[in-house]
């Protein structure tokens, strides 16, 4: 275990009757990154979060926070934002936050600053029940930040929000991460994970299908479309290049998969040096989306 380990999860499993909601899942979160837990609805994201927060008892497996079992002191360093905000509807925003500060033994002096951060300072004296969903969700984030947490966990925080609300929340998450707070974001939206996260774990039927850096996932299979005046020669020339992993034919184009980090420019220069005149050259980013869908399809078979 590294010194900066925030959370380590080993082989957790949870069954609800016949359904295995989480199946032998392991995770490891290190400080400072933004982790995405990605999977379609019902894939076990919420159950996983429920287990690591000791709200749901797992049938098997272990987890440790900051290298230790979860104590109530450790909880004060974990900020949690759920899909549905959980506050006392008859209390005002500031009263709700003060209550949480009491629970976390945190000073109430930072509350105004947090309300400003989530852009609710002007509405701090309104009752929670009068808030829109977007405001409620931002209040949840403010609440999660009370007491300077080391990690913030968010479960589908943008569900049901309008586009402005969605983008506000995503910006906030990134901003919070720049304060050094590790983030774990559960989402069924690929695009969200792609835009926000540095790392991703893909879940399906409670099983981990894949995990890695979002950037790597994007880069693994980027293909370059190439065409040239002499297609017959093009193929053999490309295959001679040691930086080329694969050459596929697609209609009249060749699809080239290069080693990660090999610039398109270098490929172009290489072809010119071999006397080939390139008539078409384009990078085809295989989006995480396609990956995600592929992974799901593979699993389905």
């Amino acid at each position: 275990m590294s010194l900066t380990s925030i959370l380590s999860v080993e082989g957790i499993t949870k069954r609800f009757g016949k359904i295995t909601a989480v199946d032998n899942l392991s995770l490891n979160l290190e400080q400072g990154y933004i982790y995405g837990l990605l999977g379609p609805n019902g894939s076990g994201k919420t159950t996983t979060l429920g287990i690591i927060l000791d709200m749901i008892r797992a049938d098997a497996g272990r987890y440790q926070w900051f290298g230790q079992p979860l104590t109530k002191e450790a909880r004060k360093k974990i900020g949690v934002v759920f899909e549905t905000p959980q506050f006392y509807p008859y209390l005002t925003a500031i009263q709700n936050l003060r209550l949480i500060a009491t629970i976390k033994d945190a000073s109430p002096e930072t509350l105004d600053e947090l309300l400003r951060l989530v852009n609710l300072f002007d509405r701090r004296n309104s009752k929670f029940i009068t808030y829109s969903l977007g405001m409620k969700q931002r209040l949840s984030i403010a609440a999660a930040l009370i007491g300077d947490p080391q990690i913030m966990i968010l479960d589908e925080p943008t569900n049901g929000l309008d586009p402005q609300g969605i983008s506000d929340i995503r910006e906030l998450i990134k901003k919070i991460n720049t304060r050094g707070i590790t983030i774990l974001l559960a989402s069924h939206l690929l695009d969200e994970v792609q835009k926000v996260c540095t790392h991703v774990t893909v879940l399906q039927h409670g099983k981990k299908l894949f995990d890695g850096k979002v950037h790597d996932v994007l880069a693994i299979d980027d293909a370059i479309e190439v065409n040239a005046d002499r297609p017959d020669m093009l193929r053999s020339v490309l295959e001679e290049n040691e930086n080329v992993n694969k050459v596929l034919t697609e209609n009249k184009l060749l699809l080239v998969v290069t080693k990660p980090g090999y610039p398109v420019r270098s490929l172009h220069e290489y072809l010119i040096s071999k006397g080939i005149i390139v008539t078409h050259l384009a990078v085809r980013k295989r989006s995480l989306e396609k990956h995600f869908l592929d992974l799901l399809k593979k699993e389905e078979k």
Partner: peptide
Amino acid sequence: TSRQNILNG
């Protein structure tokens, strides 16, 4: 909020 209270420590 029972859950929220417990999550908060």
